[in-house]
Computed example of a mutant assay.
Amino acid sequence: MELFSNTFRSLENALDYSNTKQKVISQNIANSDTPNYKAKEVDKTQSFKAELESSLESYRTDVRHLAFTPEDSQGSTIVTKKNVQYNNNGNSVDVDKEMTDLAANQIYYNAVSDRLSGKFKSLENVIKGGK
């Protein structure tokens, strides 16, 4: 029996995604006045596609059967926004949008960490025998 289910791995990947997004948003805000700086963002599709693929499990009855889980799952991908300019100096950072994304990411992180905490509390309850 596996102690940590796919839920724990999914929540861990969600926290990693939120951490990467926090770093990218912070970098964008820090460089909001840097000439010719192009804003970056975290590519959600690659992150969630990798998560869905990694959560699929299969039972192989023969070694010649293909496995459903990819061997080279990647984390989040950081993409630079090109051909966008908000300032006269060539900068593409929209500070209002970045601050909104920062707040949304904080809410997302809090929700995921609360869920992870709840999973650990459930495990603790089971270990203590429900007392």
Score class of each variant (00 low, 15 high):
residue 1 M to G: 11
residue 2 E to A: 13
residue 2 E to K: 13
residue 2 E to G: 11
residue 3 L to R: 12
residue 3 L to P: 07
residue 5 S to T: 15
residue 7 T to E: 11
residue 7 T to N: 13
residue 8 F to S: 02
residue 9 R to D: 10
residue 9 R to F: 12
residue 9 R to K: 14
residue 10 S to W: 07
residue 16 D to Q: 10
residue 16 D to W: 03
residue 16 D to A: 10
residue 17 Y to A: 00
residue 18 S to F: 09
residue 19 N to I: 10
residue 20 T to F: 05
residue 20 T to M: 12
residue 22 Q to Y: 13
residue 25 I to H: 03
residue 25 I to N: 00
residue 27 Q to K: 13
residue 29 I to H: 00
residue 30 A to I: 03
residue 30 A to S: 13
residue 31 N to Y: 03
residue 32 S to L: 07
residue 33 D to Y: 00
residue 33 D to H: 02
residue 34 T to G: 00
residue 36 N to F: 07
residue 36 N to G: 04
residue 39 A to V: 04
residue 40 K to R: 13
residue 41 E to D: 10
residue 41 E to F: 12
residue 43 D to L: 08
residue 43 D to K: 11
residue 44 K to M: 14
residue 44 K to T: 11
residue 44 K to S: 14
residue 45 T to S: 14
residue 46 Q to T: 14
residue 46 Q to H: 04
residue 48 F to D: 02
residue 49 K to R: 14
residue 49 K to E: 11
residue 51 E to R: 08
residue 53 E to Q: 13
residue 53 E to N: 12
residue 55 S to D: 04
residue 56 L to Y: 11
residue 57 E to F: 11
residue 57 E to P: 03
residue 58 S to A: 14
residue 59 Y to C: 06
residue 59 Y to K: 15
residue 59 Y to R: 14
residue 61 T to Y: 09
residue 62 D to H: 12
residue 63 V to P: 05
residue 63 V to M: 08
residue 63 V to Q: 10
residue 64 R to T: 12
residue 64 R to E: 09
residue 65 H to A: 12
residue 65 H to I: 07
residue 65 H to S: 11
residue 67 A to F: 05
residue 67 A to Q: 08
residue 68 F to G: 09
residue 69 T to D: 12
residue 70 P to Q: 11
residue 70 P to V: 04
residue 71 E to F: 09
residue 71 E to G: 10
residue 71 E to P: 03
residue 71 E to V: 03
residue 72 D to W: 04
residue 72 D to L: 07
residue 75 G to Y: 15
residue 78 I to Y: 03
residue 78 I to D: 07
residue 78 I to A: 06
residue 78 I to C: 05
residue 79 V to K: 07
residue 80 T to L: 00
residue 81 K to A: 09
residue 82 K to Y: 05
residue 82 K to H: 07
residue 84 V to P: 06
residue 86 Y to K: 15
residue 87 N to R: 15
residue 88 N to Y: 11
residue 90 G to N: 02
residue 92 S to Q: 03
residue 92 S to W: 01
residue 93 V to D: 01
residue 94 D to F: 06
residue 95 V to C: 03
residue 97 K to T: 09
residue 97 K to I: 10
residue 98 E to A: 01
residue 99 M to W: 02
residue 100 T to V: 15
residue 100 T to H: 01
residue 101 D to P: 03
residue 101 D to A: 08
residue 101 D to M: 08
residue 101 D to Y: 10
residue 104 A to D: 12
residue 104 A to C: 10
residue 106 Q to K: 11
residue 107 I to N: 06
residue 107 I to T: 14
residue 109 Y to H: 14
residue 109 Y to S: 13
residue 110 N to G: 05
residue 111 A to P: 01
residue 111 A to T: 15
residue 112 V to I: 14
residue 116 L to S: 04
residue 121 K to G: 02
residue 121 K to D: 15
residue 122 S to L: 13
residue 123 L to S: 08
residue 123 L to E: 00
residue 124 E to I: 07
residue 125 N to W: 05
residue 126 V to Q: 08
residue 127 I to P: 11
residue 127 I to T: 05
residue 128 K to Y: 01
residue 130 G to T: 06
residue 131 K to G: 07
